[in-house]
Design a protein around this nucleic acid. Structure first.
Lengths: 214, 214
DNA sequence: GGTGCGATGTATCGGCCCGATACATCGCGG
DNA sequence: CCGCGATGTATCGGGCCGATACATCGCACC
């Protein structure tokens, strides 16, 4: 359910990471959605995921143990790895869609992991989101029509701006949906990395698909 | 600090209301910002505001008391009124600006009450928001430039869409700022209701400014 | 004349996530 | 040699949400 849970599980599938690094990657991946993830959310979530068995702690020991045993009692960065159950959990979360999947942040985080989502689910989410935004749009239109005289000029201007944003997003979603249906990747092919022409993306070629990381 | 606190205080200044009605007005006024206010936030907040003395309970008795005393022990709708201290609190909250004023929801709720805000503060908020969005925009530009190859096509597309939204909002804010400086009200004069040509809006003509309400 | 259903209305509980805060290490420039 | 910013882990209080429960009223439908 939670946004962070999904995002952490997704990122740890690319590479093991410690909290600080995780936050940076999270901020990069979700930068368009929310400003920055707070440690006040991150660390408790990590603890929760670990307790559930989705992720495991792999304390970073400097090559050989016994080395520098207690000088300042260096706690060292705590590196987390995703477990097999965690991968299962991620797959389950990414595939299941509900009303909250179509809210602003819910949709954002799902979209950010579309390259790990099968096409049918992608379409389902895209269409659900479109539906949701269309309803919001209708609500704003009604308000700008019927109840216009009850609201002051600033509130009206806010609604107007919101309405425009809705219309724009619907158009965007429509494009994405058309692309999905025709088997293409999102706009601007860039190179071939994740763009190509496959009509589904089954679990990325076995062998973990991790990006290189020092 | 809280969004709801500000919004409730602002709405109760237009007319006394009970919870259910308050939620509808809240949803209308903030419809462009957040979907719908949850009762799970609303009622506890009302309790908090009442405890602090910003609002007061005015139990709705059907004309004469003693009438229909205990049949089904009708609890009746609880109507809330803003107190003098509440109005003071509102004025203080609306005038004080900080980093959280420039976040998405913080800005939205402040903007929705701009007709109760003096022009200097309006300009300060508008410019602070612009600054904030410009920074977000730069962050997204950097990501689409430097780190483009680290991200998949979908994440990239999400950033691109977010970047466009930022650019659009900056343009919108620029217009609003120009309008404020020139002493005009927000775009589209509509009629004269709240739009006219006053260069400040001192507390709306004494006498409560309440809209008619049955 | 009953019956069910949607709108009205108040309220609580568990849980996610945020902002503030605290504390410790490291490398670098002044 | 001293401060300062980046790296790094962690807790606490509190706002807000989603689910849930419960009660009344009026209207349509049978």
């Amino acid at each position: 359910m939670a946004v962070l849970e999904l995002a952490i599980l997704g990122l740890l599938q690319e590479a093991p990471m410690h909290g600080y690094e995780l936050r940076k990657e999270l901020t990069a991946k979700l930068g368009a959605i929310r400003a920055a993830i707070s440690y006040g959310s991150l660390y408790p979530t990590l603890r929760r995921l670990q307790a559930a068995g989705w992720i495991a702690e792999a304390a970073e020991t400097p090559a050989t143990a016994e080395e520098v045993p207690a000088l300042t009692s260096r706690r060292g960065r705590v590196v987390y790895t995703i477990t097999a159950e965690g991968k299962e959990r991620f797959a389950q979360l990414i595939a299941q869609t509900g009303p909250e999947t179509y809210g602003d942040t819910g949709f954002g985080v799902h979209f950010a992991f579309f390259s790990r989502t099968d096409r049918a689910t992608r379409l389902r989410i895209l269409e659900g989101r479109r539906r949701t935004i269309e309803e919001r749009r209708e609500g704003l239109r009604d308000m700008l029509g019927r109840a216009a005289e009850r609201l002051d000029a600033y509130t009206l201007e806010l609604q107007r701006h919101g309405l425009e944003a809705c219309e724009r997003e619907v158009r965007w979603l429509e494009e994405l949906i058309a692309n999905e249906r025709s088997g293409r990747a999102p706009t601007v092919p860039h190179d071939g990395t994740a763009g190509g022409r496959r009509d589904d993306n089954s679990p990325p070629p076995p062998g973990e698909t991790r990006t290189e990381r020092p």
